[in-house]
Design a binder for these strands. Structure first.
Lengths: 205, 205
DNA sequence: CCACAGGTTGACTGACCAGTCAATCGCCGT
DNA sequence: ACGGCGATTGACTGGTCAGTCAACCTGTGG
């Protein structure tokens, strides 16, 4: 059947994307050549251009695949009837788990797109903003229910929350922070606890 | 006198650096050509190479000039006998004021170096880490004095604090957050308040 | 068993640009 | 005036690489 052909083709496409993740993670997008991707995938140079219009489109695809899942997750989380801490915990958890599951992919998404908003990510600014906006909505809802203080703009709170997570990820990516399984697990709780509870010592004493 | 010559030369060097800031901020480092810098500075192409060994060295110089001042500031702040909030407020204030004073330069430092740690900033990872480490020390001291809770690792707290600031700057840089003078001023307090006090609603009632 | 439509190949091209360098300029001291 | 030296110029070179394309391969359907 013809399906065999097209599913084999789909696998090739996937192989190229997976190879690109490894190459981009190792060398960075700008210093990666298309031939590096082809070699890593064990495929001819030209085939990359059979499946993708350009080198940029490969990165585009990787980013969008992942980011859309993130956006969907945030939307779902917000619709549930949970305390803010659980909602934010779920979001932080998703991001941390994404890193645990495929550190290379998260490295590429964060370092090459999210954090490179000037050169490349300009294209994706709207998508990136959407995540901030969705988190801001979560905060807003919590403020409306008096779960969170209302004297801090939700947009700023969202940036602080997301910034804290991204910075921790960046710390792992560049081996600045310890990343044993226990550290990853702790980080989820830590980010939420820091942002919601604050660092102040409130012990009785 | 010969001094006139060398001070004129120093001014040319400065002019090239200033032009580079504008060009890098506008186009991003990777898409900036050396000729763009020369044109912007109103200077011949070759002169850039008279003052700098390479295009990278231009960015190096810009980054180090600014980052060293930041490191020095953090060190000084930590030595003073102040409550943590004031210390962290001073650090946040310095960064926000740096942005206010020269947004283009901060954009370049953050977007092209700090946040581009994979491709370019790898070189400067040690310098960048130093800032995290110094902030962690501030947190550690505060924990020792029971100003801050001790159940959160200082390194993580430092990342959350720095990440929150950087994210807010990034928000300004890409016009995601409002940046009227009042917003900048508020942001200083906001970051410290979020990180130290937390977002939880603690109002009576 | 043939023919055709993908899928697959990799040599080639055109553009781009960092960095070089030999020539020129113009200030300074004499 | 003039000789010298650092500052300044910009045309040129060498290498790199994204993207093209014409040829080739393979398996599917008739």
């Amino acid at each position: 059947m013809a399906a065999a052909r097209s599913s084999a083709a789909a696998e090739k496409r996937r192989a190229i994307l997976d190879a690109a993740v490894r190459v981009f993670a190792r060398q960075g997008f700008h210093t990666s050549r298309v031939s590096d991707i082809a070699d890593e995938a064990g495929v001819a140079y030209g085939l990359v251009y059979h499946y993708f219009r350009s080198k940029d489109e490969v990165l585009d695809t990787l980013f969008l695949e992942r980011w859309d899942v993130l956006l969907e997750t945030i939307r779902e989380v917000d619709q549930q009837d949970l305390p803010v801490r659980d909602k934010l915990g779920a979001i932080a958890g998703f991001i941390v788990d994404s890193y645990r599951h495929d550190p290379d992919l998260m490295k590429v998404v964060i370092v090459e797109v999210t954090r490179a908003a000037n050169t490349f990510g300009q294209t994706h600014l709207a998508k990136i903003r959407e995540a901030y906006a969705l988190i801001a909505v979560v905060v807003e809802h919590a403020q409306a229910r008096a779960e969170l203080r209302s004297d801090i703009a939700p947009q700023f709170a969202a940036m602080a929350f997301y910034g804290a997570i991204e910075q921790v990820l960046t710390g792992w990516i560049f081996d600045i922070l310890p990343q044993a399984p226990a550290d990853l697990e702790e980080a989820k709780r830590f980010v939420v606890e820091t942002i919601c509870g604050g660092l102040d010592d409130r012990s009785v004493g």
